[in-house]
Design a protein around this nucleic acid. Sequence first.
DNA 1: TGCAAAATCATCCAAAAGGATGACGACATC
DNA 2: GATGTCGTCATCCTTTTGGATGATTTTGCA
Lengths: 155, 155
Amino acid sequence: MKRHVLIFGLVGGLLIATLQYTEYRFIVIEHSVEIYGALVAMLFATFGIWLGLRITRRRETIVVREVLVPASGLGAEPGSAFIPNTAKQQSLGITARELEILSLVARGLSNREIATQLFVSENTVKTHCSRAFDKLGAARRTQAVQLGKELGLLP
Amino acid sequence: MKRHVLIFGLVGGLLIATLQYTEYRFIVIEHSVEIYGALVAMLFATFGIWLGLRITRRRETIVVREVLVPASGLGAEPGSAFIPNTAKQQSLGITARELEILSLVARGLSNREIATQLFVSENTVKTHCSRAFDKLGAARRTQAVQLGKELGLLP
DNA sequence: TGCAAAATCATCCAAAAGGATGACGACATC
DNA sequence: GATGTCGTCATCCTTTTGGATGATTTTGCA
């Protein structure tokens, strides 16, 4: 991958150099600038396409998908209950309430639904969400959920 | 495919025209030809790469092999790679593309980020999302992610 | 080669979510 | 009593998401 960029820079520099050199030999021709433009455009277009082909060559993927029958546990591991990472929570300064709301977010509830369920206003939910997102470094609720799961804050 | 060639020609023509036009205004600057060359080169290189990436998108051979696995834990098992529940996916009529976008949603990406990453427009992402949500019976992306995980479609 | 499914893109509109900021009361702690 | 944290709520504004719908293109397959 890095090699390609190198080649790219090389070819670019070479072309520029060639351009500068040939300028003094053929610039006398009328409209040669346009011709230059077209030439360079063609060259780099083909090169770009080639590069695109190169770096995406590994598209021929054979995907073997194994289908498993959902016999017993669907997602829920029997016997092992979720244990929240309280240390991480504290180090991030996430309050219990914020985590509670975060877990409801993770369940796919909207702010309004969460507000109804917790008997608070939607604004309050939004505030908690904002603070939690901020502490997690998330910009969206989906991202917050993902981070929360990665950090062991959510099941 | 034909449209791409058209766009190519159009951009090319436009660039040449612009070149010709600007020539009479800035050609007085020393070494502007080189600058022109570099500019045109850059433009067409990016365009070429884009085109290359576009036309070589997605070419995978999917081999669905039905293997019955003693379904024990569908949750996060350390060391074992995630095996998507293709049966469930098919029964819900969720396409590969939709699932692909769904997995990016689950990673916490916004529609715009997904669009950028997959080289498609934001509208397309939204369409895929809508269809996937519809098939999953989800009203929100967070809910879709949760359902997707419960159904074994997402890791 | 022609059809059907899938993918792509667009527009319009409504709802949800997010950011910034201020405020107020309850409670614990110093 | 002053201070600080937490939970609560609000307003204003912007961005993101979602829904509905239609069109075009690409692709896989019979």
